[in-house]
Amino acid sequence: MSIALYIQGRNRSYTPHQSGWVAFASSFAKSADSRLTLITQGLPPDKAAQLGGFGADEVMVVDGMPPVSDLHNSIEALFPLFKEKGKTFILFGNDTHSKALAALIAARLEFGIVTGVGALPESFSPLVLTRKAFSGKVLTSTLVGKPGVVLVFNAGVGEAVAGISSPVIAELHLNGNSDEGIVVDSEETGDGKQLLTDALRVVSGGRGMKGPENWKPLEELASVLGAALACSRPVSDEGWRSHHEHVGQTGKVIAPELYVACGISGAIQHVAGINGSKVIVAINKDKEAPIFEVADYGIVGDVNTVLPSLIKALKE
């Protein structure tokens, strides 16, 4: 039995969700009575070792890979490593790059693939996993018929505790071919703002905010909380905010520890994007708004008066 988890670093470091994945993979490996190998890419050895300390037994620090969007060659380069270290389970987080590699390695190894994993298996033998389907409306139990499985974890899983393991570190330089049919025309590496999908706290505004000119208090609340900003679909459709901020079924699906919904009624499509949040706070003037059915804490009131006093209270 061997279990491998793949993590690609972010800006030469790692995010809280990523340390959560290591912790979750570790409990997964323990339940399966197996060792966990963490395979990292884009991380300096010290950071990789730190990340491994959240529960890995071994860390393979990989560098020298083909360009990031050259996915086939990336898999070609990583393939021997996955084959050796992930005989039974190959685990990934749910960021865009990891999902791409997950699918390609599954296709290559003819492994079954289960995504949206947010809990340990119901049983290991036979392997049965519970996951959400229909955007959280039902749970399904999936039986994996044969050994050799790729799993993709949800964001927000795992209780990350630093330094609970002291993994063996190995560095590995991989050379890959590169595909001349994919040319990078330009690249933006973000504006340094934290990503909505990474953020542990998110402040979100809906149509109840009445207009883009009323976003100031949301921005202020986000800055006090260290939160990222999000919005509901009508807000991005109306062009009040960029569609990058849209969370919901067709937008981004997020799983922060704290989600603050302001002036959001809580349509089923919106809830589909946030129901992985640990704690949901809703502020809405309509006490019948469906958002209160999914919220943990609620204030019925006008966002224009509640937000300023919430910000004031937080600052104190």
Partner: peptide, 24 residues
């Protein structure tokens, strides 16, 4: 390779705890 062997509804979430406006 995979078979869905069972379906269930997620547990209903506990009631939302309401805080009066002004009591932020």
């Amino acid at each position: 390779g995979l078979t869905t062997i069972g379906y269930s509804y997620p547990k209903p979430k506990g009631a939302c705890r309401m805080v009066a406006p002004g009591n932020e």
